[in-house]
């Protein structure tokens, strides 16, 4: 077999973990040689071919092909959780209630109170409830006045009908206001220190 072949198995450029280095013009080309290659005498070192063996020769049968190299594990940093993670209440659940300071409790309280949408719910709901109750009372008062003083005019009759509608719908308005205000409180309670 005189056919000269290029075997990528012995080329460093095709080895796993090969990192091409930028070559300066005046600097000699140095192939990356890993400590594994130096430690293993049977392993053909890339870029350093033996004299007995031609440069482009078939791989010697007596020489075992290089074992598939497993990528060297990247040295990871020690996986120790940061100190603040350990200090979180989830990490030490059993003893955490006693260790929380007053400041830690107050901070999310103020943070949640600064949510403007919650205030819109609470204030809007309260105003709606007050408006519904006041309109209910006003409608009853006005209706009484008209009923006791009416003279059979059509304007009076039309106003009575509208007042009756207010009396019918005002309780619903009042209830909706209460529900909306309660929803604001529910949001605050649900989002507390989540």
């Amino acid at each position: 077999m005189t056919e000269s072949t290029f075997d990528p198995r012995y080329d460093p450029a095709f080895q796993r973990g090969y990192v091409p280095r930028p070559q300066n013009p005046g600097q000699a080309v140095v192939s990356p040689v890993s400590p594994d290659d130096l430690a293993d005498p049977q392993r053909p070192v890339p870029g350093r071919r033996s004299a007995a063996r031609p440069a482009f020769a078939m791989p010697d049968a007596s020489v075992a092909p290089p074992a598939p190299r497993v990528a060297a594990p990247v040295p990871q940093q020690q996986q120790t959780p940061p100190a603040e993670q350990l200090a979180e209440p989830q990490a030490t659940d059993a003893a955490e209630p006693e260790r929380e300071t007053e400041e830690e409790i107050r901070r999310p309280f103020v943070k949640e109170l600064l949510n403007p949408f919650v205030w819109v719910l609470i204030v809007g709901g309260a105003l709606l409830a007050i408006w519904g109750r006041e309109s209910y009372f006003d409608a009853y008062r006005r209706q009484s006045q008209l009923q006791f003083n009416q003279d059979g005019q059509s304007d009076t009759q039309a106003e009575l009908e509208s007042l009756w509608a207010v009396i019918q719908f005002a309780p619903t308005l009042f209830g909706a206001g209460l529900v909306i205000a309660a929803a604001g409180l529910v949001v605050l309670a649900m989002r507390w220190r989540r």
Binding site: R133, Y136, F137, Y140, R141, R142, Q143, S144, Q145, I167, P171, F174, G175, L178, V179, A182
Partner: peptide, 20 residues
């Protein structure tokens, strides 16, 4: 009129108070 409203408040608004 206020008296009527007060009487009816217990029957029409009070359920909302209790429910909410």
């Amino acid at each position: 009129g206020y008296t009527y409203a007060l009487i009816n408040e217990g029957f029409r608004l009070a359920p909302w108070y209790v429910g909410v």
